[in-house]
């Protein structure tokens, strides 16, 4: 599949601060790509380079096959953007802003606009200055989602939304993905990315430290297993298996963690000991994420 967004070795410095330090990001057509990292890791800087708002000091970036700095206007006809911190014109209504941004991009679908306003429970007649943070975010989301563009760039789009509205957003994202839309979803809310994204890139201190499908990333980490067995089980029988760690046996209760690729053999041992209950918890994105950061902190 073709890469919709591709960066190689992006570097961006602000004075003495290096915001991006050789960032390689690849987003393929038709995927929702989670862009994860803590505050200040360089997510927004990357996005603003992809939008042609900032100029990188070195490295290359391609968006829809074009250079975002030189061809920004042409690229922007085919994408919609929701900034993390939405500010509206104080004396324009939300409805006016939605129409304006849609038209400046090349038009929006009025049916979809009306539908989104209803589902997001947005009052489009209020003036920009009287919206709350969440409602400003909704204005930007409706403006972005009302268009008919193949690429969405969302910078922490749900930061101000309540859980109900976040669900509306997730539903909409799923529906749009089914239509073949490509989405770059920057966030530090792991559950949000976990629900929506197929592939994830984790950014730390201006570099991508890990990138791949959730399955790929999980493959490299451990699943937590807790089981009860009918017959006494010698811990040694589990410990001698490859990829099994932290084995603890307490009467009929057995807990351990296992590298995801080796789970079959461990379950077979449990089965021979008369497995009665089993819970296995795959690593959450949070575990992946924290693992990267703990590692980085330890290595420092």
């Amino acid at each position: 599949m073709a890469a919709v967004i591709e960066t190689r070795g992006l570097v961006k410095r602000f004075g003495s601060v290096t915001a991006l330090d050789g960032l390689d990001l690849s987003v393929e057509e038709g995927e929702v790509h989670g862009f994860l990292g803590p505050n200040g890791a360089g997510k927004s800087t990357t996005i603003r380079i992809l939008l042609g708002l900032l100029r990188s000091d070195s490295g290359t970036a391609r968006v829809l096959g074009k250079d975002p700095w030189a061809d920004s206007t042409e690229i922007h006809r085919h994408l919609a953007y929701v900034p993390g911190d939405v500010t509206l014109w104080p004396n324009l209504t939300g409805g006016e802003v939605i129409d304006l941004l849609g038209r400046l991009r090349g038009g929006l679908d009025p049916t979809r606009r009306a539908d989104l306003i209803e589902r997001f429970e947005l009052d489009p007649t209020k003036k920009g200055r009287s919206y709350s943070k969440g409602n400003r975010q909704k204005v930007a989301l409706v403006a972005a989602l009302s268009g008919d563009v193949p690429l969405l760039i969302l910078d922490e789009p749900t930061a101000g939304l309540d859980p109900l509205m976040e669900r509306v957003f997730q539903d909409e994202l799923r529906a749009r993905r089914a239509q073949g839309l490509t989405v770059l979803l920057s966030s530090h809310i792991l559950s949000e990315v976990e629900r929506a994204a197929e592939r994830v890139s984790i950014v730390r201190a201006g570099r991508i430290v890990d990138s791949g499908t959730l399955a790929d990333l999980r493959h490299l980490t451990r699943t937590q297993v807790a089981a009860t067995v009918a017959e006494p089980l010698a811990p040694q029988r589990l410990r001698e298996l490859p990829g099994v760690h932290d084995v603890a046996v307490d009467g009929d209760r057995v807990t351990f963690s296992v590298d995801t690729g080796h789970i079959g053999a461990a379950i077979a041992v449990l089965d021979r000991a008369g497995l009665t209950t089993l819970t296995s918890t795959p690593p959450s994105l949070e575990d992946l994420f924290l693992a990267h950061y703990d590692e980085a902190a330890a290595g420092r």
Binding site: L92, T93, G95, E96, L100, R103, L104, T125, K126, K127
Partner: peptide, 19 residues
């Protein structure tokens, strides 16, 4: 008090100059 305004933009609001 702030009054509500129009729910849709005027047809002319479609350029940086109009904005």
């Amino acid at each position: 008090p702030a009054r509500p305004g129009r729910a849709t933009a005027a047809a002319s609001l479609r350029s940086p100059l109009a904005l």
